[in-house]
Amino acid sequence: MANSGVGGGLTRRQLFERRARRRALIIASTSSLAVVLAIVLLVPLAPGWEAVKNSFFNGEVFLRTFPTLLRAFLLDMLIFAWCAPLIAIWALVIAICRDVQSPALYPLRIFATIYTDVFRGVPVILVVYLIGFGVPGLGLPRPWNSPYIWGSLALILTYSAYVAEIYRSGIESIHASQRAAAHSLGLSGADVMRFVILPQAVRRVVPANMNMLIALQKDVALLSFIGPVEIFRQAGVYKSLLANFTPYVVAAVIFLAITVPATRFADALLARQNRARS
C-alpha cells in the first residue's frame, strides 16, 4: 500500500515509466522534425531540383494519371489473386514430394529437388520471358496464347519453389515427438503427415509466407514485359506520352499503399508467434 495512492492511483514505478515515456517521445519527435526540416529546406537548394521536381513530382501529371493507373492496378490485383492460391497448392505438393520416404516414389523426390534448385536459381524475369514468350511462340490457338496465362504460370512456378522451401522448414520444425506419438497410435505415414505434421507446419510458416505474398504483389509488375497493360506498363505509356516520370511515382505510391500495411501485418503476426513460443 506504500506505493499506491500517489499521483492518482499510480505506483512510483508507473509514474517513473510515464515520465520516461514522455521524455522519449519529445526527443524522438524533435530529432525527426529536425531531419525532415533539413530535407525540405536543403534539397530544393540543389542545382537540379527544379528539373527533378518537374519531371518526378509534377502535381498536375499526378492528378491526371492517377485514376487510370489505379484502374490498371486492378489487373495486378487480379493476377495476384489467381496466382497466390495456386502457388500455395503447388508449393505444398513440391514440399511433400521432397519429403516422401517410399523408394518407389524416389523419382518424385528427385524431381522436387531439381525443381526447387532450378527455379530458385533463375531470376524471375528470365522465367517470365522464357515461358511468357516461349510457350505462345509454339503457335497455340486462342486463348492458349494469352500472355496472362503463361506469365502467371511463370510467377507460379518460381514462387512455388520458394514457398515449398518455407513449407519444408515448417515441416522440419515440428518436433520428432509429435511424429512418434502419431506413429505409436498406428496411423499410416500419409495420415501422420496429413493430420498431424502439415496442419501444424503450415500454421507455423504463415508469417514467412506473408512476406512471399508481398514480394509476389510487386513482382506481378514483371508481366508488363510480355504484354499485359498493368500499372507498370501503363505508367510507361504515360511517361512516353507526357515526357514525364511522375506516373512512375504514382505507381510506387499505389504499390506502397498496399504493401506497407501488409508488411506491418506480417511483422505483427511474426512478433505474436515469437511471443507465443517463448
Binding site: 506419438a181 505409436s184 497410435l185 498406428g186 499410416s188 498431424v196 501444424q200 500454421r203
Partner: peptide
C-alpha cells in the same frame, strides 16, 4: 503399423496434438 495399434504408449511429455 498393425502391431503398434495393439500396443499403446504414453510419453512423459504427453505429446498431444496442439492443433
Amino acid at each position: 503399423q498393425p502391431i503398434r495399434r495393439r500396443i499403446g504408449i504414453v510419453f512423459q511429455s504427453f505429446n498431444l496434438f496442439p492443433h
